[in-house]
């Protein structure tokens, strides 16, 4: 079936029958992600040189990424110098929400783009203070496109809220497959929503093997210490490297 619009056209109708054209064949061997990956490599080198542990935080719009960051940063900023790059299509509402004394916050407005890429993040890093210990990159809320684009982060973390439903990992596999850590958020809502946690864990297992998963709530702080501990252990390793 046609993937773009679901019109039921047969795929083979779309590619016309062709004969091998005459002419010289020139080998290329270049990836479509070449430019992004090159810039991501530069970001990674820059961040490693400054010993900054960097989390690319991904998830749906409304998963609770900003609220989770607010609560996380309140705890971490007592011990570490924190930076946040936050991406949205329009506006600087997240920057204003996240701003607090001692925390560097930078808003990226992507305009029509549905994801952050290494180029956008690279320009943001030019403005970052030199003494950061931990950097969070809050990606554009989207479970599809941001999965493809390496930003130069140390770890990819995907936040799935119980309100979204347990079927999301199986419906958006690319997003969850390459996650270093999956967070299941808004667990305070469990009495009010249908969330089959066992199904989510089974599907995640099929996608990524027995990977790390933390259940938490930014509202009542259940599980937050486990998450903060994971960040601090990683940040300490990066400091020592």
């Amino acid at each position: 079936m046609c993937e773009s619009c679901g019109c039921g056209e047969r795929d083979d109708v779309i590619e016309p029958h062709r004969h091998k054209p005459s002419g010289r064949e020139v080998p290329v061997g270049r990836s479509l992600l070449e430019e992004n990956d090159l810039l991501a490599g530069r970001n990674r080198a820059f961040l490693q040189k400054r010993r900054i542990f960097t989390v690319n935080l991904l998830g749906s719009p409304g998963a609770g990424k900003t609220t989770l960051l607010l609560e996380t940063v309140k705890i971490l900023s007592e011990r570490w110098r924190i930076g946040i790059i936050t991406g949205d299509q329009v506006g600087d509402e997240d920057r204003r929400r996240l701003e607090s004394p001692g925390v560097w916050v930078h808003q990226i407005e992507t305009g029509r783009m549905c994801h952050l890429d290494a180029h956008l993040v690279g320009h943001s890093l030019e403005e970052a203070p030199e003494d950061l210990d931990i950097l969070f990159i809050e990606n554009v809320g989207n479970l599809v496109c941001p999965a493809l684009f390496d930003l130069g982060e140390s770890r990819k973390v995907v936040l799935l809220s119980v309100a979204e439903g347990a079927d999301k990992p199986s419906k958006y596999p690319e997003m969850f497959r390459w996650a270093d850590l999956v967070l299941v958020g808004k667990t305070d809502l469990l009495p009010y929503v249908e969330f089959d946690g066992e199904r989510a864990k089974r599907d995640l297992g099929r996608l990524r093997g027995p990977g790390r998963l933390i259940e938490l709530s930014a509202k009542n702080h259940d599980g937050i210490s486990e998450w903060v501990d994971w960040i601090e252990r990683n940040a300490a390793l990066v400091k020592k490297s």
């Binding site: 010289r24 064949e25 020139v26 080998p27 290329v28 990836s31």
Partner: peptide
């Protein structure tokens, strides 16, 4: 996971 441009055929 690859998305690689292998080659192209050109007219000089």
């Amino acid at each position: 996971r690859e998305m690689v441009t292998e080659s192209f055929v050109m007219e000089e």
